[in-house]
Structure formats: structure tokens, C-alpha cells
Design a binder for these strands. Structure first.
Lengths: 222, 222
DNA sequence: GCATTTATTTGCGTATGCATTAAGTAATGA
DNA sequence: TCATTACTTAATGCATACGCAAATAAATGC
């Protein structure tokens, strides 16, 4: 009925991603192509294709004869990722502010902010993280630059991975949503400079917190 | 003797890139996998792997049953590319200024600027383009963010492609090198704000020129 | 003559097997 | 004991083959 036959390559990409995010394939671990093929119950060919794609997205690395390495996330890596996000997202915020969107266009953004409030109120970290992702995704979408969307999408994957290991360590980000509302208002008002600068500060603050958490986490586990 | 056997996949990546840049594989054209395999005198497997990689780099697109499409470069695409470059490179310039580099560290950057001057003096467009690439590459390297280097590398490929079709149409960029020198000086002086803002303006100016040229070019050929 | 269905071709996705080559190991010599 | 080298092993890179699905051509009915 609603079954759509998905290609093995695509399935390999999806499942490998999921297993990396879930930690089933741990950061820093090595895996033979044949091992992954067994795991996914398919031949090496589609696995290799998926691995090639994921390598391009910075999730893993092919090391001939050494296996496929799931890339670890050092605090330094995360600092780099956040710097890219800071630059590209704040540019997106600026563009969005210049685009003269109306309330309807911004409804998704608004909803994400409300959802974050709700999630914070009930202390639901997962729901908060999900809404936060939606906010940032929608912001970049409104910016209108497809390449920025693609790049930010990849980098956000890395953030998600890092968040997975640190979410339980952090306080509820109650203040964070004030920033989101300010960015929203600036976009709504067409105030590009404020949108840009506010979002930049927001991201830099987030960077500092996450890098500190990751460093602490690393101290405990290495 | 000094011959190093290169893998077919890697060769496929290199040769396909070269053929795309040279225009032998024209922007917008479609090609069957088997056709490319014949062209490179190898089997479909390494070609597919190369195509996967190049797809991730935004040079082409796989469209099942339609063949591999070499992505065309619209003025809109180029505007997007330049916006990414503007944001990430000016961040790199800022970081470089903060890094307290000495003359020795900046020698490569300096050399590139001198080479551009020389190229302009003798009206050698190819040499100028080459030195310009080196300047931007070195700038980003000095910024120290590996991910930014990778992203900028990909986007620069797109710029190179566009430049190929428009280089003959443009005036010698005599003024451009003043910007380069200003950025250099700002980095040398540790003046992060100036480095950043100067480079931003430089890139935005370049964007305007190239987009205009591409639009004109498109009018002539479409 | 046009539309719809059927047949045919063609390109792609995947599996499989083999050749290559590098990592690891053992052995020999200093 | 250490270094050098030959050998073993095993993972990868690549070619090839096959089946399926989509696109195109042909054919039949209206």
C-alpha cells in the first residue's frame, strides 16, 4: 500500500546515520565495510556508496585497510562547527529580516519558539532539542540560500551528536529562548542588523557552553 | 620509478573535475555512467564512486535514468556561493588577525599579493587568477578552521568554473589588490574588525561584478 | 488519427568474485 | 636486542554480471 521501495544505498545512509547518532556506532570506533554490510544485511556495494556520502558530510572517514572510522567529536571540532554555524546562520537571519516576511511566513518559526517554552516549562529536554532544531532549520530556510541550508544541515548533525552526549549534563536553557524571540522580532521588523547581531551572540554563547561541557565530558571519559 | 599508482576512483575524481572545469563536460550537459566510464577507460564502479563524491561537492547531480548532470551555474547560484564565501572568509580574516602572526607566517599571503601585482602589470589574467586563488586559500588557512577551509575550497571551485566563462569579459582587477593589501595589513596589525570588514566588502564587490557578468553572459548564450 | 496498451530497450542498483596492496608477523642477520 | 626483509593474511578497489524498473517504441483498439 503505502510501502515505497527504498534503494539499499539510501537505506544504508539512513541507518548508518541513525546508528551514529544513537551511539550504536560509537564515535572513534572502526568498522570494516564487510562488517557494516553484515549489520545492514546487504552487500558491500551500497554500503560503500553510503560511506562515501557520509564521508562527504563529515560523519566518518574511510581509512584504507583500517576500516571506516566514525569521527570523534573533540571540543576543538565543535568550536569549528559552531563558528561556521554562527557565521552562516546570522547571515541567514540578516537575509530573512531583509525579506519582508509577514506573520504567516514566520508562523513556523514562532511555533518553534512556543514549543521550546512549553518544553522548558515541563522540563522535557528532548522536546526542547527538537524544537530548537526546528527553529534553527526554519531560520536558515527563511534566509533563502540553499547552500547555506545544506551546510548548516550538515553542521547541525554534528551538534546533534554532541548534544546527545551532553544533554543530560546541562541546565535547562531558559534564557536561550529570549534570544530566539529577539531574533524573531528583529526579522519581523525588518531590522537586519539586530537580527544578525543577536543571533551571532546567541550562537557564540551556545558554543561556549557546549565546548565547556564537552571538555568536561572528555575529562571524565578519557 | 617516481610513479605512484593512483586508484581509479581518485583518478576519476581528478579527471572528471578537470573536464568539468575545462568545459569538456559542459555545464548543464547529461552523461550516462557508462559513457563516463568509457571516456575514462575504466569500469562503472569507480566512476560511480567519483560521481558520488563530486555530487557531495556540488559539481554534478545524479538523476536516475537521466544520467549524470553537470550542474549549470546560474547567476543566482553564484550569488549564493559568494555569500557563503563572504561570511566564512571574513571570519577567517578576523581569526587570522587575532592569531598574532608574524611576517614569516604571512609570507605566503604577501607573495600572492605581489604576484597579483606582477600579473596585472603584464596583463596576465591566468596568472592573476592563480595568485588570487592562492591569496584566498592562504587567508582561510591562516584562519585555522578546517571545516571552513573545506567549505571554502568547494565554493571556490564553483567560482573558478564561473570565472572560466567570464574571465575574458572582465577588466583587469587593478583595484582589487588594494583590498588585499588592506586585509594583509589589518591581519599583520592584529586589527580583527578591519580585517573582517575589509574582506567582507571585497567579496561583496566581487560578487556584484561576477553576478553581473554571468547575467550578461547568459543573455548572450541562452 | 489519437489514445492506450504492450513490447522492447536501456540504464541503474546491487551482488559477487578476483586481484591488488598494505598491515602485521615471523624469520634471519648483524 | 634491534633492524631489515620476506611472507602471510585479509581488506579494499575494481570489474563484471544480472535483474528490475523506467523510458521509449510499436501496435492495437477506438
Amino acid at each position: 500500500m503505502t510501502k515505497k521501495p527504498i534503494s539499499s544505498s539510501q537505506r544504508a545512509i539512513q541507518e548508518l546515520r541513525a546508528k551514529i547518532f544513537s551511539g550504536e556506532l560509537a564515535a572513534g570506533s572502526d568498522h570494516l565495510e564487510s562488517e557494516l554490510a553484515d549489520l545492514l544485511e546487504m552487500s558491500r556495494t551500497p554500503v560503500r556508496e553510503a560511506v562515501l556520502t557520509l564521508e562527504g558530510q563529515g560523519l566518518l572517514e574511510m581509512r584504507p585497510r583500517k576500516g571506516v572510522r566514525i569521527l570523534p567529536l573533540s571540543p576543538e571540532d565543535m568550536a569549528e562547527v559552531y563558528d561556521v554555524l554562527t557565521e552562516l546562520e546570522s547571515h541567514a537571519a540578516e537575509c530573512a529580516a531583509l525579506a519582508d516576511y509577514d506573520d504567516d511566513d514566520l508562523s513556523e518559526l514562532s511555533r518553534a519558539i512556543d514549543d521550546m517554552d512549553a518544553a522548558i516549562a515541563e522540563g522535557n529536554l528532548d522536546a526542547w532539542a527538537d524544537a530548537d532544531d526546528r527553529f534553527h532549520g526554519e531560520l536558515v530556510r527563511l534566509g533563502g540560500n540553499k547552500r547555506i541550508q545544506a551546510i548548516v544541515g550538515m553542521m547541525s548533525d554534528q551538534v546533534r551528536r554532541a548534544r546527545m552526549t551532553t544533554l543530560f549534563m546541562r541546565p535547562l536553557p531558559t534564557k536561550s529562548n529570549e534570544d530566539h524571540r529577539m531574533v524573531y522580532q528583529a526579522i519581523r521588523n525588518g531590522d537586519a542588523a539586530t537580527a544578525r547581531d543577536t543571533h551571532r551572540q546567541h550562537r557564540q554563547h551556545a558554543k561556549a557552553i557546549l565546548v565547556a561541557l564537552l571538555s568536561k565530558h572528555r575529562l571524565r571519559y578519557l
